[in-house]
Design a protein around this nucleic acid. Structure first.
Lengths: 274, 274
DNA sequence: CGGATGTTTGACTTTGATCAATGGAAGTGG
DNA sequence: CCACTTCCATTGATCAAAGTCAAACATCCG
């Protein structure tokens, strides 16, 4: 089928991923460390390069002239930052570190050069871009059509899905802890709410027994209820996330039908005259 | 720099685009016509293929269990539908035609095969994916952080930017007509509003002299005011939109600074120990 | 003409924003 | 170790933007 998805064994898969990443790292200039809470790139600034995230969290956001802010993406280790700005000379978003980070800058000109952009690399990048696009779409659905409580639940479920156990860590099936890299103002800026609303909803969710709060870590206590509340279906793992995360998701996805339509005969499509 | 962006002459550029597209069309099975307002793909349905849009409009949307809907993307001629679902076996969004359409189905397995995924094709697809991602981000900013009036203005400006003159049509600089392929309920589902709010805001905008309504066509009468109201900056044309649209945008973009930061020394980044 | 689809308008309700005060935790400097 | 600041979270009172409901109106089309 494709370069990545036809490989099922974990060892082989991880191996391919590592090969792609090491190619990227060879393209990169020296890795750089960024302290927590630093602006890495300003909106409208001339773009310097893409970044492969080695460790830490960052986020992309846009500022409106009146100071309102919308966080558009959370970047985790393994993510490639800047695929959405390909072909733009200036950054459409600002980029900021949430925690101490190590990133590898990769020049766009190098990445897009024929010697680097092999079919395998191209497939990897396209899957990465697809991941990002799916997450953006889901965020848009949450922000556009859910109320405040649902948005918070949605966010926690998304963070659970995107959680990474570090190198080769097997996720415990009953592990319901998530790491919340945002403060409440940032959560608001991600979900289209204010910090005040976020605080109120989080307190209420804790009171209702949905979550248990431990500083920046949160335990999800009623996972099934939460998934039902937002019709949540975990996305299939693609690209490097495919590795260790296959088992627990596969089964569940088959059951959770939710809003997925019974599929009437889909659209009358006739061969075109063309 | 890259396969596409280092080509400046329009003729050459268009030529490259056409070459890529004809490759895609050769990958495709027979083109199919879809009547207006038909479901092409249901949410959760097993994906059949990607689609290259030849003519007409379509949109992708997600349904929530209670029937609320969020439109996530508008697809125009030249767009490739389904890049965001690469690697997923089931569609994360539903797809529906807005007008009569002709589309070329392209199988994912074929598209991702090494013989087709040349560096040039890969670059084309990555630029397309980047375009989509940028539009999604901008939509998220509008839905998350703008009030109803600003969202409507934002939508009209976006439609103006994405407007296509058809094959080789030079856009008239003072041409302020846009084509609105949505009805008011659909506009609401795109912007996170209700049809009632959309109606009220549109009437008010017309009364204030911002727009002049002619059925599904709208004339923008106070473009500068509208751009100021939402801090609008047109994205740079990439991929095939680069062709005829270069001239009018280039100049304006240099001026509209808006929210773009004066850029303090961006982030202390130190070489990492790694 | 009748029916389907889409738009407009008004009355009323509700969610989340705003404003403002309080409290707690972490870090800093004396 | 203790003031002091800063950043964040919480809580309550009030307000406004947009949602909901319902009815009327417009357009299109067979």
């Amino acid at each position: 089928m494709s370069y990545l998805s036809d490989i099922n064994g974990h060892d082989v898969h991880v191996c391919v991923m590592e090969a792609v990443k090491s190619t990227l790292k060879r393209c990169a200039s020296q890795p750089v460390t960024v302290a927590a809470r630093r602006e890495v790139q300003y909106q409208g600034e001339v773009r310097k390069s893409l970044y492969l995230v080695e460790s830490g969290y960052l986020h992309s956001y846009c500022l409106l002239p009146d100071g309102r802010r919308q966080i558009t993406q959370l970047h985790q280790p393994g993510d490639i930052i800047g695929l959405g700005d390909l072909g733009q000379s200036r950054a459409t978003c600002a980029l900021r570190s949430l925690r101490d980070c190590v990133v590898y800058p990769v020049a766009e000109s190098l990445l897009m050069s024929p010697s680097i952009l092999s079919p395998g690399m191209a497939a990897f990048l396209l899957y990465k871009a697809a991941d990002t696009q799916t997450t953006l779409s889901r965020t848009l659905v949450a922000v556009g059509r859910m109320d405040a409580r649902q948005r918070l639940i949605w966010l926690m479920l998304m963070l659970r899905d995107r959680r990474q156990g570090g190198a080769g860590a097997q996720p415990v099936p009953g592990d319901d802890m998530i790491d919340m890299p945002f403060n409440q103002s940032e959560i608001g800026d991600l979900l289209g709410l204010t910090n005040v609303s976020v605080s109120k909803v989080l307190c209420q969710l804790a009171e209702d027994g949905f979550i248990e709060r431990r500083g920046c870590r949160i335990r999800l206590r009623r996972l099934a209820d939460m998934q039902r509340a937002v019709d949540h279906v975990s996305p299939e793992p693609t690209a490097d996330r495919a590795g260790p995360f296959v088992a627990p998701w596969g089964a569940r996805r088959a059951q959770t039908a939710g809003s997925q339509r019974p599929a009437q005969p889909p659209a009358d499509m006739k061969p075109a005259a063309s």
